[in-house]
């Protein structure tokens, strides 16, 4: 399965300046591991040592937060768009 991963501004310097990276994998965990193999500098920023998601990283598959779809076990299929976003204070009207 090949998905497209959208990289947030804050991670781009450590990821070759790319905004979009195609990555193979059948789960979110596989996709993120693949990314950390290509870009070791971001390893600690994507995944914790136990393989769970970094607490300030939100990962979305087609705009759905994967924490509510099974976390790193959430499935990925061809042409999925995966968005990485830092957790920030929302608008908080």
């Amino acid at each position: 399965m090949t998905a497209v991963v959208r990289i947030p501004t804050v991670l781009r310097p450590a990821m070759g300046g790319n905004t979009v990276i195609p990555v193979r994998g059948t789960t979110i965990g596989e996709v993120l591991s693949e990314l950390t193999m290509s870009y070791p500098a971001v390893k600690g920023q994507l995944l914790n040592d136990d393989g769970t998601l970094h607490r300030f990283l939100n990962v979305y598959v087609n705009d759905d937060d994967v924490r509510y779809l099974g976390g790193v076990g959430a499935p990925v299929v061809d042409d999925d768009e995966i968005t990485l976003l830092p957790a920030v204070a929302g608008g908080a009207r």
Binding site: H54, R55, F56, N58, L85, P86, A87, A89, G90, G91
Partner: peptide, 22 residues
């Protein structure tokens, strides 16, 4: 829960460690 893609619009973050969860 519905949220805007805030993390995309906020470009003042220096690193992920500047993140925030209420």
């Amino acid at each position: 829960a519905i949220e805007p893609p805030s993390g995309e619009m906020v470009d003042g973050l220096r690193s992920l460690e500047d993140g925030y969860i209420p």
